[in-house]
Amino acid sequence: MSVLVYAENAGGLFKKATFEAITYAFDIAGGTPVTAVAIGPASNEELQALGQFGAARVLHIADSSFQNFDARVYARIISDAAAQVNATKVVLANTYSGKSLAPRVAVRLKAGLVPAAVDLPAANGIKRTVYSNKGFADTIAKTSVQVISLTTNAYKVEGGKPNAVVEVFSASVSAADYKIRTIEVKKVTGKIPLTEAEVVVSGGRGLKGPENWHLIENLAETLGAATACSKPVSDMHWRTHDEHVGQTGITIKPNLYIAVGISGAIQHLAGVSGSKVIVAINTDKEAPFFKIADYGIVGDAFEVLPQLNNAIKALKAAN
């Protein structure tokens, strides 16, 4: 028995979601070996550092012809690595890439897949979110090999373990197996990706218009937060669609979600109710958001936001 974890990287750098997945892999391994597989160029230091979260070995495909993502090719590599280390559990982070890969890896290994896992395996199975965060399903994979894809921000990263041994890995695929050609990658720079953000400041129709969004952006900047919005806000093109959270938008699970001028319709809450702490700011004390918020201010966003921003700035300056 052993655990394999897919160590996703972006341009050779590993992200928090990967560290979460490795920590989780280590915690479910119960002392059995944890191996990470990494695809594409990355420095030896970066690879060795994966050990700190619990991967004793890192299998590395350094060949730059594997740099671009093709789910079919990557899934083969991960499955080959799983076979090589006799993995009984394969862990991935439930990122965009993870979501593309997990079902394919599961089919290749004929493994039951538990997607969007939020907790460690227990007697009832593994807890995962269902019904757009309105419920949980304890899910049991009935197969001898299991694939788990871990919801981002759901599991705490724990470092401090020794560095990993890095080994070159060669899989049964070559560049000729690619069926997908990457033409262009448009990375949003200078902005914290919403799906990875620990703090999110979000605005709704209560903000009245795009010209007022500096209030949201200033607070987000002070907090090191990502910005989000309700559906009507992106439908009216006040903000771009990639900020729209909810049932038909992105689902997020930050530590802190600050909802400003958002009523809290059930479809909106579906995307954000998994947040650890929720703050709602709304002029209407009957707004449904207050039913699920931890902290609330019944007040005008135009007055509250600048004050909140200043108070947090002062706190950050003092610490």
Partner: peptide, 10 residues
């Protein structure tokens, strides 16, 4: 390959 054991509300 999988089975839901228990459904719970948050």
């Amino acid at each position: 390959l999988t089975e839901v054991n228990t459904l719970t509300l948050p």
